[in-house]
């Protein structure tokens, strides 16, 4: 189950500048845990004790926010891609 995860600019300090990383997992939660194992520190920017942080959006295949699917339990299959997008752009 290799999933592509697209990383926004503010989080690339954790991924050695990579804008896309690959991770394994059957759910979004598993994939993010695998990303965290390889790039420590990134998960705390995305999740808090209640789940996905309020200003963070995670899309499955550029279509649907996982909030409208099954959240962190959303199933993913090999070849799927996740996009992490901040709710805003920053700067004005």
């Amino acid at each position: 189950m290799t999933i592509k995860v697209r990383v926004p600019t503010p989080l690339r300090t954790f991924t050695a500048g990579l804008d896309e990383v690959e991770a394994e997992g059957a759910t979004v939660r598993d994939v993010l845990a695998h990303v965290e194992a390889r790039y420590p520190g990134i998960q705390a920017r995305l999740l808090d004790e209640k789940g996905v942080r309020r200003f963070v959006n995670i899309f499955l295949n550029e279509e649907e926010d996982i909030r409208f699917l099954d959240g962190l339990d959303t199933a993913v299959r090999s070849g799927d891609a996740l996009q992490i997008v901040p709710a805003i752009a920053g700067g004005r």
Partner: peptide, 18 residues
């Protein structure tokens, strides 16, 4: 300034990462 590079404070910049 936003406490972190990844933030949701529209209009503000985290200068260390911008």
């Amino acid at each position: 300034e936003p406490a972190d590079a990844m933030h949701g404070l529209e209009g503000l910049k985290h200068l260390a990462s911008s």
